[in-house]
Design a protein around this nucleic acid. Structure first.
Lengths: 252, 252
DNA sequence: TTCGATTTGTTCGTATGTATT
DNA sequence: TAATACATACGAACAAATCGA
């Protein structure tokens, strides 16, 4: 007889997982279902322990992992909160460019184009779609210290963002992932990036204010929500004359 | 009265830190002092609890963090071990290049040059040395699928690597960080990398088998040991025609 | 092959400290 | 001040993996 059954968590169905993994999954499901909105507190550890009929220590261990993944945020004396895509978080975890002096700066964003399209074979594979499914294609120009530095080409499944329009996208108040989260309930929790070096062509060079042939950093990003489901594909071209990409595996 | 004093860990001296942080520091100090060599097991949790006069749970929490930082490695039923710089670990945590198909491959290394030198201003700053201190400069050519892909320029303080020579470096059996660890007791536990795009010049192009003017990925790496002490500076130039740099913030 | 000792992994419960409201 | 919530620390019991007798 497993402990999970004893505790009544999934009566009659052996899980094969430790109890705290089960608890973690149930909390994650609550997050996916929108039981608690971004910025809100989840129930206290004591209440969750009561609800799931496990000890507080087991709930803590489950939450520990979600906090380590930056999905939840603990604050002593206040509660445990669903992480929001604030500017600070974006800058810290999702924006990796720094000046050559090491300083990080908030980029200015200008939307250049917004188009409807169909996923090509590669995009479909990466986003887990069928080829030809409807997507939005958005091109942004990012500036640092009022100089253009990055061209971002975003591809997202139209299905996930029902009423997205240039107006909605352009008039957002916070970050792009903040928009996904607040308006569409899509919570980006992890990204993977593949970097290479390339050369600016004429059109790109014009946008970035560099000559054709200038070396650029090319970044292909895939953004994921819960359960490793990909939700956004983003290709960036970076002028690294004044800036660098920082890759720092942090410590606790 | 603090708990640390009660427990006798640092009698009479208030730490201001939680007890488990104190325990973590003492284990870390043991690692720095070479009390337990890489690959060896540290004492069991019960023994450490006895030694430090704290509960097993407190020792576990200290070890938890060291495991999260990949300094220690736990194995149920066996013990807790000091992480070694095996090829697998290097490939997984310190080598970020993958083929365009996503596959990771063990690089072949060829030492091109080995020189004695003096730290310039920038190197001194980054390595925490005084300007003019003696350093070794080592240039390696890395190959993937028998094609040259990376030029590595390594700079390390001579003081930390007493009898290092081309022979010692060239006849090592394992990885470079494995050599640092096994022969000099220097344990690289973290790296930070700054990436930018650049162009191949004639000499570099010749080594990598590409034309001058080919875009290359430029990587400036700083490797750290305990207490964030920098120990190695490494500059890499990567031909990203067939390979990419993977930046993936992993999950638990 | 079996069994027992050892070691880490999981879970429980309790008490107390510390920060917030 | 009091209530609430997370943080730390302790101890105990059992599970699971490993290893050697």
């Amino acid at each position: 007889m497993t402990l999970a059954i004893e505790a009544g968590l999934s009566a009659g169905v052996p899980t094969g997982h430790p109890l705290y993994k089960e608890v973690k999954q149930r909390i994650t499901r609550g997050l996916m279902d929108g039981d608690w909105r971004p910025g809100e507190a989840i129930p206290s550890e004591a209440k969750l322990a009561e609800r799931f009929q496990v000890s507080v220590g087991t709930v803590r261990k489950a939450i520990d992992e979600l906090v380590a993944e930056k999905i939840l945020l603990r604050q002593q004396g206040r509660g445990t909160f669903v992480a929001t895509h604030t500017l600070d978080r974006t800058l810290f975890y999702f924006f990796h460019l720094v000046g050559k002096d090491g300083r990080k700066e908030t980029p200015g964003t200008e939307m250049l184009t917004f188009a409807h399209g169909r996923a090509d074979a590669q995009e479909a594979t990466q986003l887990g779609l069928s080829r030809g499914e409807r997507v939005y294609r958005i091109r942004n120009l990012l500036s640092l210290s009022d100089e253009p530095v990055v061209i971002d080409d975003i591809v997202i499944p139209a299905q996930l963002f029902p009423d997205l329009s240039p107006a909605v996208f352009g008039t957002r108040t916070g970050t792009i992932y903040g928009l996904y989260q607040a308006r569409y309930g899509i919570n980006v929790i992890r990204i993977a990036e593949r970097l290479s070096a390339t050369l600016a062509d004429d059109s790109v060079g014009q946008l970035l204010g560099v000559q054709a042939g200038t070396p650029l950093l090319s970044i292909a990003r895939l953004a994921y929500t819960y359960n490793d489901q990909p939700v956004e594909l983003r290709h960036s071209l970076v002028d690294t004359t004044q800036h660098e990409y920082l890759s720092d595996l942090v410590k606790s």
